[in-house]
């Protein structure tokens, strides 16, 4: 899916590749890929980005590819690359599905929870979680592909509220 040298920009400072997976864009393949990825992250050195944060972000990003880019039909591939840098993990996820509506990644705004029980939101948490836990998130359409890049800092914390 293109030569790596065209996209040096997403890579982590002094980064070393830790993961490069290519898998079908349907739910069970994505679940397996996520499992493989988490096993690799579990073996990363102490002080690397918190594995729970990585799992939350990757699960949301890959679910979005399955549900929206490939609209649940599953025909197409997903490419996941990760580099381990001095301050962060750098991620690049590419797919050949539908572009993001409006040409950009959703803002992922927080919900108003000061509502009655029946008005509580049951969706729309995904992009909020992704935005909250990542840095330098960028989306672009390259030809017929989507490319999403972001970093997760090694010292990423779940914000206190």
């Amino acid at each position: 899916m293109g030569t790596a040298d065209q996209h040096r920009g997403w890579r982590a400072a002094s980064g070393a590749p830790v993961l490069h997976l290519l898998f079908p864009g349907e739910a069970s393949s994505v679940r397996r890929a996520l499992k493989t990825a988490m096993a690799v992250f579990g073996d990363m050195p102490r002080g690397s980005a918190p594995i729970s944060v990585v799992e939350i972000v990757l699960a949301e990003v890959l679910n979005n590819v399955v549900e929206h880019a490939y609209a649940e039909h599953g025909r197409g591939l997903v490419e996941l690359e990760v580099e381990h840098g001095t301050a962060s993990l750098a991620f690049r996820i590419r797919d050949e599905g539908l572009p993001m509506p409006g040409g950009d990644a959703p803002a992922g705004l927080a919900h108003d929870l000061d509502v009655s029980a029946q008005d509580l939101p049951e969706g729309g948490f995904g992009w909020f979680l992704i935005r909250e836990l990542t840095e330098d998130l960028r989306y672009r359409r390259v030809g017929t592909r989507n490319e999403l890049t972001f970093r997760i800092a090694h010292d990423a914390q779940v914000p206190d509220r």
């Binding site: 939350i56 949301e60 029980a117 029946q118 049951e122």
Partner: peptide
């Protein structure tokens, strides 16, 4: 061990189904 945004939505839905 793991719950994603769809899982969270399902737990919220269960909360709403139970009420009032």
């Amino acid at each position: 061990a793991f719950l994603d945004s769809s899982g969270l939505g399902a737990v919220v839905a269960a909360f709403k189904q139970a009420a009032p």
